[in-house]
Amino acid sequence: RFGNRLHLLPACTDAFLLDVRLASVRAREAALERALRPVEADYDIIVIDCPPSLGLSMDAASYYGRRRDNETTGNSGVLIVVQAEDSSADAYGLLTSQIEDMRGDLALDIDYLGL
């Protein structure tokens, strides 16, 4: 149906170890960007689906989703998926706090694309 225009790379079973591996990487926030840079030009859209954690993998995904120089607002950013329940509201608050910290600490423009 998509004429070879949609590619999915499923998570592996040891993805929960990603934060442990990222802990030893220099400039870990940019690790995902370095990994995807060779293929970015081949795609119109790249969506990173993160595990529901507040770890280093979330930082790397948020950093990757930042607005880059000369990029139009709304072309990159974070889309936050939540359930309508109290624990999701709490997690949303923690996540947005983490993103706001990254925005301030690293002087990044990270747009919220939706909820």
Score class of each variant (00 low, 15 high):
residue 2 F to A: 12
residue 4 N to I: 13
residue 6 L to H: 06
residue 8 L to C: 11
residue 11 A to R: 10
residue 12 C to E: 13
residue 12 C to P: 01
residue 16 F to T: 03
residue 18 L to N: 06
residue 19 D to T: 13
residue 20 V to L: 12
residue 20 V to E: 08
residue 22 L to D: 01
residue 26 R to W: 07
residue 29 E to H: 09
residue 34 R to D: 12
residue 35 A to H: 03
residue 38 P to K: 01
residue 40 E to F: 07
residue 42 D to N: 06
residue 42 D to C: 11
residue 43 Y to A: 00
residue 46 I to Q: 04
residue 46 I to D: 02
residue 48 I to H: 00
residue 53 S to M: 11
residue 59 D to E: 13
residue 59 D to T: 05
residue 60 A to T: 02
residue 62 S to E: 02
residue 64 Y to C: 00
residue 64 Y to Q: 04
residue 65 G to Q: 00
residue 69 D to M: 09
residue 69 D to E: 11
residue 70 N to S: 13
residue 70 N to F: 15
residue 72 T to L: 13
residue 74 G to I: 03
residue 74 G to C: 01
residue 75 N to G: 11
residue 78 V to Q: 02
residue 79 L to G: 12
residue 81 V to W: 06
residue 81 V to T: 08
residue 82 V to R: 09
residue 83 Q to K: 04
residue 84 A to P: 10
residue 84 A to L: 05
residue 86 D to L: 15
residue 88 S to V: 01
residue 89 A to S: 14
residue 89 A to E: 13
residue 89 A to Y: 11
residue 93 G to V: 04
residue 93 G to M: 04
residue 93 G to P: 01
residue 94 L to V: 05
residue 95 L to A: 10
residue 96 T to S: 13
residue 96 T to A: 04
residue 102 M to Q: 04
residue 105 D to W: 04
residue 106 L to S: 01
residue 106 L to P: 00
residue 107 A to W: 04
residue 109 D to I: 06
residue 110 I to P: 05
residue 111 D to C: 06
residue 113 L to F: 03
residue 113 L to C: 05
residue 114 G to C: 06
